[in-house]
Write a protein that binds this DNA or RNA. Structure first.
Lengths: 249, 249
DNA sequence: CAGTGGTCTAGACCACAGG
DNA sequence: CTGTGGTCTAGACCACTGG
């Protein structure tokens, strides 16, 4: 009966014939994007959702478990199902791959160097999927660990989704949580392209190293829950005492 | 009844009280390691496994689906469940993160520079989890894409698990498939530590670049299905036309 | 205690592959 | 046609949380 059962209440608009549990996944995600449930809030129980959607509890369960694996939701036995928040230690490191060579992972503090509104260059516009010269926010930061300046970030945000950011009294260290709470933009996926470069004079100065030292360089494209590109950033990191950590499985 | 049902035939030895589906996962994995089913072979159907293990079909299904997500198995509707093989395009790229900047992903050909048996240095021994001076294989390779030498690899293997490798007539390009078919070592997870370095004289010569150019450098520790460290490698890659690609989600 | 998610089962029916 | 996995349902019982 997959995809052909119209006894449910999920609004199978258009021609997409998906299994019910996939429809539930999409529907729940959409409701989160529309803020029916805000980050940290509890969803109704499986049985309530099942009756609301007109499917069985097992089908709802399968969808919620998939979304939990995708870190869109958190589930706790005895407590309930909650919209995932970009807070708490695991979430903070989820998208932060840089580690000091001989230390435990630690989040560096950050220092805003500048925050300006600019017109998107051709490259930035293409990355963000917007038109050239559209307004973008450019945030430059420097991050420090154990008193050592270790990395520099140029962060581009589409102004449309982050309108008013220039009026924020303070830009917190944990940007992705900030995006989520202040602009309803939940970071869902990132794609990093890593290269090795020679430090420019300016970067070397800001990092207190000699020009000519090698740096880990990477560009990152960030997608939100609704699959929009919401951030493009270029990071340079000292490579003497730090590395970029990746696990494949 | 989770973990307390001894009506099953899974041999809950020791004190591990795991949910049945977890026990099935472990059991199936173990049977694959022991080569009851070889890579590419078909497993019995869900119902057959269920009756063999003394659990219900739904429980087997849950376990097999988890193992499929972990890429230990492949399932095809109408066909059956198969032990995953490190062959076929997706599997080849699963652990190969290097991409030419403006091209589609492509696997570079490889050229063996040397294959020697050595005594593990302190560092290599520690990485592989063996004693210093244990016998290890050292395989040096150079890989080429579009006629351009792009990367160098120093690959260390514990000789115990790869005994006889020095007598192999040829070392294929696709090493992980080779490990699997010839030594029953299935690569399951890798951990890469990426840095930026300046090319040494030797590396520059082998890569046909100038000494002093920046290189993407990374060390990789590889774990097998049974969670042993089976490979440690150090890779250097030209950074001018290539990058290391990572997706987080 | 009541309410939540977690585990396990049993069974119906669909979709797909191959002979 | 048969056999496989995929979807969906219904229901029992367990384990955890908070009041």
């Amino acid at each position: 009966m997959a995809g052909t059962d119209f006894g449910n209440k999920l609004g199978t608009s258009g021609l997409a014939f998906l299994p019910l549990y996939k429809q539930v996944e999409k529907h729940v995600t959409q409701l989160i994007v529309e803020q029916r449930w805000k980050p940290g809030e509890m969803l109704p129980s499986e049985f309530q959702l099942a009756s609301e959607f007109g499917v069985s509890q097992g089908t709802v369960r399968k969808a919620l478990n998939t979304l939990t694996d995708a870190k869109v939701l958190n589930r706790k036995q005895g407590l309930g199902t909650f919209v995932a928040e970009h807070t708490g230690t695991p979430a903070l490191y989820r998208f932060f791959p840089l580690v000091a060579d001989d230390h435990n992972p630690e989040l560096p503090v950050s220092e805003v160097l500048s925050l300006t509104i600019e017109q998107a260059s051709k490259d930035v516009a293409q990355q963000l999927g917007i038109k050239t010269r559209t307004k973008v926010v450019l945030l430059k930061r420097r991050r420090t660990l154990n008193g050592e300046h270790c990395l520099l970030e140029d962060i581009y945000l589409p102004y449309k989704e982050f309108a008013g950011i220039e009026k924020e009294p303070e830009i917190p260290h944990t940007l992705y949580h900030f995006y989520q709470t202040n602009f309803n933009q939940t970071v869902h996926k990132t794609e990093d392209k890593i290269k090795a470069v020679i430090a420019s004079k300016e970067d070397a100065k800001l990092l207190s190293i000699k020009a000519g030292e090698p740096l880990i360089w990477f560009s990152r494209l960030t997608k939100s829950l609704n699959d929009q590109n919401i951030e493009y950033r270029v990071t340079r990191c000292r490579s003497d005492n730090y590395h970029y950590l990746v696990n494949f499985d």
